[in-house]
Amino acid sequence: MSDATVSVNPIKRALSRVDWGYLWYQVMKSPLTLGGGAVVLTVLFLVIFAPVFATHDPNAIDLRARLAAPSWDHFFGTDEVGRDLYSRILYGGRQSVAVGFFVVLVAGFIGTFVGAFAGLIGGRVDVVIMRLMDVVLSVPSLVLIMALAAALGPSLINAAIAIALVRIPVYVRISRGQTLLIREMSFVTAAETFKASKLHILRWHILPNILSPVMVQATLDLGSTILLASALSFIGLGAQQPTAEWGAMVATGRNYILDQWWYSAFPGFAILITATAFNLLGDGIRDILDPKQKAR
């Protein structure tokens, strides 16, 4: 990047010479990324078309079939009021995936803009914003999220808002760091000499270049958000009865763990598989886009 002759927007150059063959080669070389991507697609497919794949109404109570073991009739067994766990897990995935995307979109958008803004304006505004972010980041995030969720009132959407608020600083940092880097690069200096407005610089030079690190972070965050949201539901700060949600199902199943293991086991396994797949995919994308940034 120290090349002094860089005077065209590098992202445009990069886009025009994205070597899809090379990208494919990289993905194929990494079976874990490929596997993660495949599982992510499968999960999204199953969850979106839950009504097609479900065998029962997820909320249909059947007291004659309470706490039934897994069988051909109920693949994953039934819960304490006879609802089909397999169908509930399919529908529950909608909650988890929705929360994941909500958090990443909200935190990603706000964080990216605030960060780019701080980096571009600089000066005192920048210092104040970044100090604020430092402080938020220094508070143990799980506790902060729990406290926020509790204060907002227990519901899945409030849990999602709490997570999103606490995740914003992460994106602010990435976006600001990237902005400062790009600002110093000669093509932006060149644009400034032509009296390009800050907005113009932001739109045409900075934002396109922030995208790739933000996307990597977002993919990784999808996995951790799904985990976090289910944890909040587990301690009663997320989804409430009778909504089908993975964390809440594990929580209720906890009372039956020694005798009806399937009740907690299957929803928890769904969380594990989904989070793992998103994390594998995120790791893989990061390694390909930015091989220098190490796995932390």
Binding site: A231, G253, R254, I257, L258, W261, G268, I271, T276, N279
Partner: peptide, 25 residues
Amino acid sequence: RVIAVTGISTPAFWLGLLVILLFYG
């Protein structure tokens, strides 16, 4: 790497229940 990613992606509250089921139950 699979173990590591699994570790990061495991809901601790669920893993806790499973080990209770196995080693206690």
